[in-house]
Every structure is written in structure tokens, then in C-alpha cells.
């Protein structure tokens, strides 16, 4: 008799439960773009590293020394543009959904993402200081994966699988040191594009078609 009202009640309950505990405005498109930046960055870095390897003796040492700053700059530009794109696109998506960007669920998501990520960041700088370069790439992947895994409790479920994939890649790369850049490109580039596209088609594309 009143079965429509009961159906509304149930969907209201589900909606409130997910909206209050998970941040669902995360933009899939920003994942695709972040992955693309990472691939471009990896391509540029690859050129610089090739350039070092083509030289010998003192010249090689000097080129390598000069290149460190360039590589750092590329990494910085990639990260900054990925973060900015993520914030802007997520802002527009949350506006469209009628949610506030900076609410309790967003804060919770960010805190739980940043704790493992900052741990990894500090740890990697320690390795850099001690000259243990070969495990930096695996560590960044593993800690980033852990950050995604931890944050996934507070957002869409796909982030969990992204985290697990990146952790796996990081562990594999720990056994193939020297190929760090390729694993980076795979983890931060390809994985972001794949999962970003998955999220985009699952949540945004369908909605905009309706």
C-alpha cells in the first residue's frame, strides 16, 4: 500500500549512511590527468637518464650531478599539477553534487591518506640522505599504495584496488632495482589512468547521461 514510501525511506537511509561516512565526490577524471602528467614526467626523466648513461668517466659523473636538480624539478612539477588538477576537478564535482568540498568526510579522507604518505615521504628522504637510492622507487610506490588503501575506507571502493595494485607493483620493483622509473610510470601513470577511467565511467559518465 505505502510501499513507495518505504522504498524512499530505505534509499534515504542508504544515501545518508554513505554520504556521512564516505567522500564520494572524488573525481575520476583527475586520476586520468594525474596519470598522464606522470607518464610525461617519466618520459622526460627517461631522456635525462639516457643522457647520463651515454657518457663516460668524469663527464658522466658531472652530468649526473647536474641532472639531479632537473629530475627533482620534473617530479615537483608533476606532483604539483596533479594535486592542483585533483582539487579543482573534485571541487567542481562536489559543487555539482551539492556537497561541500571541505566537510567532515573530506577531512577524514585527507588525514587518513596523508599519514602513510608523509611517513613514506620522510622515510624516502632518509634513504636519499644515506645514499640508498635503489629502494626509493619501490618505497614511494609501497607507501603511496598504503595511503590509498588506508584512505579507501572513507571514499569510493575503487581506491582500495588502486592501492593494492600499487603496493604489489612496489613489492615487485623491490626485486628489480634499477628499473624504478618503469615501475613508477606503471604505478603512478598507467594505474592512475586505468582506475581514474574506471571511476569516471562508473560514477560520472553514467550520471551525466541520465
Amino acid at each position: 500500500m505505502d510501499s513507495n514510501k518505504y522504498l524512499d525511506d530505505i534509499s534515504e537511509i542508504k544515501n545518508m549512511m554513505s554520504r556521512s561516512s564516505r567522500f564520494i565526490s572524488l573525481s575520476g577524471l583527475s586520476g586520468i590527468l594525474a596519470g598522464t602528467y606522470a607518464l610525461i614526467g617519466a618520459y622526460l626523466a627517461h631522456g635525462i637518464i639516457q643522457n647520463i648513461e651515454n657518457q663516460f668517466g668524469v663527464k658522466r659523473f658531472l652530468t649526473a650531478l647536474n641532472s639531479v636538480e632537473k629530475l627533482m624539478l620534473i617530479a615537483l612539477i608533476v606532483i604539483t599539477s596533479a594535486v592542483i588538477t585533483g582539487i579543482v576537478l573534485t571541487y567542481y564535482k562536489s559543487k555539482k553534487n551539492g556537497d561541500k568540498l571541505w566537510d567532515v568526510s573530506a577531512k577524514r579522507l585527507l588525514t587518513n591518506f596523508l599519514i602513510p604518505l608523509l611517513t613514506g615521504g620522510i622515510f624516502c628522504f632518509a634513504m636519499l640522505n644515506n645514499g640508498v637510492f635503489e629502494y626509493i622507487a619501490p618505497s614511494t610506490l609501497i607507501f603511496y599504495g598504503m595511503a590509498c588503501l588506508n584512505a579507501s575506507k572513507y571514499t569510493v571502493r575503487d581506491v582500495r584496488y588502486l592501492g593494492i595494485t600499487v603496493i604489489t607493483l612496489g613489492l615487485i620493483s623491490a626485486y628489480f632495482t634499477g628499473y624504478g622509473l618503469y615501475f613508477w610510470a606503471l604505478g603512478f601513470g598507467v594505474c592512475h589512468i586505468v582506475y581514474g577511467a574506471l571511476m569516471h565511467f562508473k560514477y560520472d559518465w553514467k550520471k551525466s547521461k541520465e
Binding site: 525511506d9 534515504e12 537511509i13 542508504k14 545518508m16 549512511m17 556521512s20
Partner: peptide, 8 residues
């Protein structure tokens, strides 16, 4: 209903 859903 909403209050209870959030608190659950």
C-alpha cells in the same frame, strides 16, 4: 531517519 542513519 537521517539522524539515525548518520549515527549508525
Amino acid at each position: 531517519l537521517g539522524i539515525m542513519s548518520v549515527l549508525m
